[in-house]
Protein backbone atom coordinates (compact mmCIF):
# COMPACT_ATOMS: atom_id res chain seq x y z
CA UNK A 1 0.00 0.00 0.00
CA UNK A 2 1.42 3.35 -1.01
CA UNK A 3 1.38 6.25 1.42
CA UNK A 4 -0.67 9.42 1.13
CA UNK A 5 2.20 11.40 -0.36
CA UNK A 6 2.63 8.83 -3.12
CA UNK A 7 -1.13 8.63 -3.79
CA UNK A 8 -1.20 12.42 -4.08
CA UNK A 9 1.79 12.42 -6.40
CA UNK A 10 0.16 9.82 -8.68
CA UNK A 11 -3.10 11.76 -8.60
CA UNK A 12 -1.16 14.84 -9.77
CA UNK A 13 0.18 12.83 -12.72
CA UNK A 14 -3.22 11.40 -13.73
CA UNK A 15 -5.05 14.69 -13.20
CA UNK A 16 -2.55 16.49 -15.45
CA UNK A 17 -2.74 13.80 -18.14
CA UNK A 18 -6.55 13.95 -18.17
CA UNK A 19 -6.66 17.76 -18.14
CA UNK A 20 -3.98 18.33 -20.78
CA UNK A 21 -4.60 15.30 -23.01
CA UNK A 22 -0.96 14.32 -22.60
CA UNK A 23 -0.24 10.57 -22.48
CA UNK A 24 1.75 9.21 -19.55
CA UNK A 25 3.68 6.00 -18.96
CA UNK A 26 1.98 3.13 -17.19
CA UNK A 27 1.95 4.18 -13.51
CA UNK A 28 3.49 0.97 -12.19
CA UNK A 29 6.73 1.76 -14.03
CA UNK A 30 7.54 4.59 -11.57
CA UNK A 31 5.39 3.18 -8.75
CA UNK A 32 5.85 -0.60 -8.90
CA UNK A 33 4.07 -0.96 -5.54
CA UNK A 34 0.80 0.46 -6.93
CA UNK A 35 -1.94 -2.02 -6.01
CA UNK A 36 -5.56 -2.23 -7.12
CA UNK A 37 -6.60 -0.61 -3.82
CA UNK A 38 -4.06 2.16 -4.45
CA UNK A 39 -5.59 2.66 -7.87
CA UNK A 40 -8.99 3.20 -6.27
CA UNK A 41 -7.34 5.51 -3.68
CA UNK A 42 -6.09 7.64 -6.60
CA UNK A 43 -9.63 7.63 -8.03
CA UNK A 44 -11.02 8.76 -4.67
CA UNK A 45 -8.48 11.59 -4.53
CA UNK A 46 -9.38 12.60 -8.08
CA UNK A 47 -13.04 12.80 -7.04
CA UNK A 48 -12.17 14.89 -3.96
CA UNK A 49 -10.26 17.36 -6.15
CA UNK A 50 -12.97 17.48 -8.85
CA UNK A 51 -15.68 18.20 -6.28
CA UNK A 52 -13.47 20.88 -4.70
CA UNK A 53 -13.39 22.48 -8.16
CA UNK A 54 -17.19 22.50 -8.24
CA UNK A 55 -17.67 19.48 -10.47
CA UNK A 56 -20.57 17.21 -9.62
CA UNK A 57 -20.60 13.42 -9.31
CA UNK A 58 -23.05 11.83 -11.76
CA UNK A 59 -22.57 8.09 -11.65
CA UNK A 60 -20.40 5.04 -12.21
CA UNK A 61 -19.08 3.24 -15.23
CA UNK A 62 -18.14 -0.41 -15.29
CA UNK A 63 -15.10 -1.60 -17.21
CA UNK A 64 -13.68 -5.07 -17.96
CA UNK A 65 -17.18 -6.51 -18.07
CA UNK A 66 -16.58 -9.03 -20.84
CA UNK A 67 -15.14 -12.45 -20.13
CA UNK A 68 -12.44 -11.85 -22.77
CA UNK A 69 -11.24 -8.62 -21.11
CA UNK A 70 -11.32 -10.17 -17.65
CA UNK A 71 -9.16 -13.06 -18.83
CA UNK A 72 -6.83 -10.61 -20.60
CA UNK A 73 -6.41 -8.58 -17.40
CA UNK A 74 -6.41 -11.58 -15.08
CA UNK A 75 -9.38 -10.45 -12.97
CA UNK A 76 -12.76 -11.93 -12.09
CA UNK A 77 -14.67 -8.77 -11.27
CA UNK A 78 -15.21 -5.63 -13.36
CA UNK A 79 -13.56 -2.33 -12.45
CA UNK A 80 -15.61 0.74 -11.65
CA UNK A 81 -14.90 4.35 -12.60
CA UNK A 82 -16.59 7.67 -11.89
CA UNK A 83 -18.63 9.91 -14.19
CA UNK A 84 -18.97 13.62 -13.58
CA UNK A 85 -21.99 15.62 -14.72
CA UNK A 86 -19.90 17.86 -16.99
CA UNK A 87 -18.73 14.85 -19.03
CA UNK A 88 -22.28 14.11 -20.21
CA UNK A 89 -23.22 15.29 -23.68
CA UNK A 90 -26.70 15.34 -25.22
CA UNK A 91 -27.60 12.97 -28.06
CA UNK A 92 -27.85 14.49 -31.52
CA UNK A 93 -25.05 16.91 -30.77
CA UNK A 94 -21.40 17.30 -31.66
CA UNK A 95 -18.87 15.94 -29.21
CA UNK A 96 -15.50 17.72 -29.13
CA UNK A 97 -12.57 15.34 -28.83
CA UNK A 98 -9.73 17.86 -28.87
CA UNK A 99 -9.31 17.31 -25.14
CA UNK A 100 -8.90 13.57 -25.57
CA UNK A 101 -5.85 11.49 -26.49
CA UNK A 102 -7.10 8.49 -28.49
CA UNK A 103 -10.86 8.38 -27.98
CA UNK A 104 -12.91 5.27 -28.70
CA UNK A 105 -16.65 4.59 -28.49
CA UNK A 106 -18.57 1.69 -26.98
CA UNK A 107 -22.31 0.97 -26.96
CA UNK A 108 -23.69 0.32 -23.47
CA UNK A 109 -26.88 0.15 -21.45
CA UNK A 110 -27.28 2.76 -18.71
CA UNK A 111 -29.23 2.12 -15.51
CA UNK A 112 -30.81 5.16 -13.85
CA UNK A 113 -31.58 4.39 -10.21
CA UNK A 114 -34.68 5.57 -8.36
CA UNK A 115 -34.02 3.89 -5.00
CA UNK A 116 -30.90 3.28 -2.94
CA UNK A 117 -29.31 -0.18 -3.19
CA UNK A 118 -27.01 -1.40 -0.43
CA UNK A 119 -25.49 -4.56 0.94
CA UNK A 120 -23.15 -7.38 0.04
CA UNK A 121 -25.68 -9.31 -2.07
CA UNK A 122 -28.62 -7.87 -3.96
CA UNK A 123 -30.77 -9.89 -6.36
CA UNK A 124 -31.58 -9.08 -9.97
CA UNK A 125 -35.16 -8.50 -8.80
CA UNK A 126 -33.91 -5.89 -6.31
CA UNK A 127 -31.84 -4.25 -9.05
CA UNK A 128 -34.91 -4.05 -11.30
CA UNK A 129 -37.09 -2.70 -8.50
CA UNK A 130 -34.54 0.01 -7.65
CA UNK A 131 -34.07 0.99 -11.32
CA UNK A 132 -36.07 3.95 -12.59
CA UNK A 133 -35.31 3.04 -16.20
CA UNK A 134 -32.62 1.75 -18.52
CA UNK A 135 -31.62 3.62 -21.65
CA UNK A 136 -29.04 3.47 -24.45
CA UNK A 137 -25.61 5.03 -23.92
CA UNK A 138 -22.51 5.65 -25.96
CA UNK A 139 -19.42 5.88 -23.80
CA UNK A 140 -16.33 7.61 -25.11
CA UNK A 141 -13.33 6.09 -23.40
CA UNK A 142 -9.80 7.46 -23.48
CA UNK A 143 -6.86 5.69 -21.93
CA UNK A 144 -4.22 8.16 -20.87
CA UNK A 145 -1.37 5.67 -21.16
CA UNK A 146 1.37 5.70 -23.79
CA UNK A 147 1.50 2.90 -26.35
CA UNK A 148 -1.52 1.19 -24.77
CA UNK A 149 0.73 -0.30 -22.13
CA UNK A 150 -1.17 -0.55 -18.89
CA UNK A 151 -2.12 -2.89 -16.09
CA UNK A 152 -5.20 -3.12 -13.91
CA UNK A 153 -3.97 -0.81 -11.12
CA UNK A 154 -2.96 1.85 -13.66
CA UNK A 155 -6.32 1.64 -15.47
CA UNK A 156 -8.24 2.03 -12.22
CA UNK A 157 -6.07 5.00 -11.17
CA UNK A 158 -6.94 6.51 -14.58
CA UNK A 159 -10.63 6.31 -13.60
CA UNK A 160 -11.14 3.20 -15.74
CA UNK A 161 -10.53 5.18 -18.96
CA UNK A 162 -13.69 7.23 -18.41
CA UNK A 163 -13.91 10.27 -20.69
CA UNK A 164 -17.38 11.29 -21.87
CA UNK A 165 -20.85 9.78 -22.14
CA UNK A 166 -23.93 10.36 -24.29
CA UNK A 167 -27.24 9.09 -22.95
CA UNK A 168 -30.24 8.98 -25.25
CA UNK A 169 -32.69 6.79 -27.09
CA UNK A 170 -35.79 5.52 -25.39
CA UNK A 171 -35.91 4.96 -21.64
CA UNK A 172 -37.54 1.63 -20.82
CA UNK A 173 -38.49 -0.36 -17.75
CA UNK A 174 -36.00 -3.25 -17.57
CA UNK A 175 -38.69 -5.93 -17.18
CA UNK A 176 -40.18 -4.86 -20.53
CA UNK A 177 -36.96 -5.83 -22.33
CA UNK A 178 -35.09 -9.05 -23.05
CA UNK A 179 -31.99 -7.75 -21.25
CA UNK A 180 -30.15 -11.08 -21.51
CA UNK A 181 -30.00 -10.81 -25.29
CA UNK A 182 -30.82 -7.24 -26.28
CA UNK A 183 -29.19 -6.49 -29.63
CA UNK A 184 -27.11 -3.50 -30.66
CA UNK A 185 -25.48 -2.28 -33.85
CA UNK A 186 -22.73 0.36 -33.70
CA UNK A 187 -22.31 2.37 -36.90
CA UNK A 188 -19.60 4.87 -37.78
CA UNK A 189 -20.29 7.05 -40.83
CA UNK A 190 -23.15 4.74 -41.80
CA UNK A 191 -20.91 1.67 -41.78
CA UNK A 192 -21.88 -0.99 -39.23
CA UNK A 193 -18.75 -1.84 -37.23
CA UNK A 194 -20.08 -4.03 -34.44
CA UNK A 195 -23.03 -6.32 -33.87
CA UNK A 196 -23.49 -7.48 -30.29
CA UNK A 197 -25.97 -8.29 -27.55
CA UNK A 198 -26.33 -7.27 -23.92
CA UNK A 199 -25.37 -10.73 -22.66
CA UNK A 200 -21.79 -9.78 -23.61
CA UNK A 201 -21.81 -7.90 -20.29
CA UNK A 202 -21.39 -10.64 -17.67
CA UNK A 203 -24.29 -12.56 -19.21
CA UNK A 204 -26.75 -9.85 -18.17
CA UNK A 205 -26.16 -6.15 -17.48
CA UNK A 206 -28.07 -6.33 -14.17
CA UNK A 207 -25.23 -8.55 -12.90
CA UNK A 208 -22.95 -5.51 -13.21
CA UNK A 209 -25.24 -3.52 -10.92
CA UNK A 210 -25.16 -6.39 -8.41
CA UNK A 211 -21.35 -6.37 -8.44
CA UNK A 212 -21.25 -2.57 -8.21
CA UNK A 213 -23.44 -2.61 -5.09
CA UNK A 214 -21.23 -5.32 -3.59
CA UNK A 215 -18.08 -3.32 -4.40
CA UNK A 216 -19.59 -0.17 -2.90
CA UNK A 217 -20.60 -2.13 0.20
CA UNK A 218 -16.98 -3.22 0.61
CA UNK A 219 -16.03 0.45 0.60
CA UNK A 220 -18.73 1.35 3.13
CA UNK A 221 -20.84 3.01 0.44
CA UNK A 222 -24.21 2.47 -1.20
CA UNK A 223 -25.61 2.97 -4.71
CA UNK A 224 -27.77 6.05 -4.27
CA UNK A 225 -31.07 6.92 -5.88
CA UNK A 226 -30.56 9.21 -8.87
CA UNK A 227 -27.20 7.70 -9.78
CA UNK A 228 -26.54 6.69 -13.40
CA UNK A 229 -24.54 3.51 -14.06
CA UNK A 230 -23.01 2.54 -17.38
CA UNK A 231 -23.16 -1.24 -17.28
CA UNK A 232 -20.17 -1.95 -19.55
CA UNK A 233 -19.36 -2.31 -23.21
CA UNK A 234 -21.57 -4.61 -25.29
CA UNK A 235 -19.36 -3.96 -28.32
CA UNK A 236 -15.62 -3.72 -28.76
CA UNK A 237 -14.26 -0.17 -28.55
CA UNK A 238 -13.88 1.62 -31.90
CA UNK A 239 -11.67 4.62 -32.61
CA UNK A 240 -13.37 7.87 -33.55
CA UNK A 241 -12.01 10.85 -35.43
CA UNK A 242 -13.18 14.45 -35.97
CA UNK A 243 -15.90 14.48 -38.64
CA UNK A 244 -17.24 11.03 -37.77
CA UNK A 245 -20.96 10.40 -37.37
CA UNK A 246 -21.72 7.75 -34.78
CA UNK A 247 -24.98 5.88 -34.39
CA UNK A 248 -25.77 3.10 -31.94
CA UNK A 249 -29.08 1.28 -32.55
CA UNK A 250 -30.54 -0.72 -29.68
CA UNK A 251 -33.25 -3.38 -29.85
CA UNK A 252 -36.54 -1.97 -28.50
CA UNK A 253 -34.71 1.12 -27.11
CA UNK A 254 -34.31 3.29 -30.23
CA UNK A 255 -30.92 4.79 -31.05
CA UNK A 256 -28.33 7.43 -30.23
CA UNK A 257 -26.72 9.59 -32.92
CA UNK A 258 -23.88 12.06 -32.52
CA UNK A 259 -21.10 13.74 -34.41
CA UNK A 260 -17.48 14.07 -33.45
CA UNK A 261 -15.41 17.22 -33.84
Amino acid sequence: MLDVTQINAITDIVDAAQSNAKPIPMLTIDYPGLSLDDGYAVMDELLRRWEARGREFYGYKAGLTSRAKMVQMGVDVPCFGLMMRDTCDPEGGTIPTSGLIHPRVEAEIAFVMKDDLAGPEVTVEQVYAATDYVQPAIEIIDSRFENFKFDLASVVADNCSSARVVLGGRPRRPEELDLAALGVVLEVNGEPLAYAASGAVLGHPAHVIQLLVKWLHGRGQILKAGTVVLAGAMTEAHYIHPGDSICARFQDMSSISMKVS
Binding site: A181, G183, V184, M234, R249, Q251
Partner: peptide, 17 residues
Protein backbone atom coordinates in the same frame (compact mmCIF):
# COMPACT_ATOMS: atom_id res chain seq x y z
CA UNK B 1 -31.69 -5.41 -33.96
CA UNK B 2 -32.56 -8.74 -32.32
CA UNK B 3 -29.56 -9.63 -30.17
CA UNK B 4 -28.03 -13.10 -29.98
CA UNK B 5 -25.96 -14.56 -27.16
CA UNK B 6 -24.36 -17.97 -27.71
CA UNK B 7 -22.82 -20.06 -24.96
CA UNK B 8 -20.69 -23.18 -24.78
CA UNK B 9 -21.06 -25.09 -21.50
CA UNK B 10 -22.45 -21.97 -19.85
CA UNK B 11 -19.66 -19.62 -21.01
CA UNK B 12 -20.55 -16.87 -23.47
CA UNK B 13 -18.63 -17.34 -26.70
CA UNK B 14 -20.10 -14.81 -29.12
CA UNK B 15 -22.83 -12.20 -29.28
CA UNK B 16 -24.32 -10.54 -32.33
CA UNK B 17 -27.46 -8.94 -33.71
Amino acid sequence: LAGMVAERNGEIVVTGS
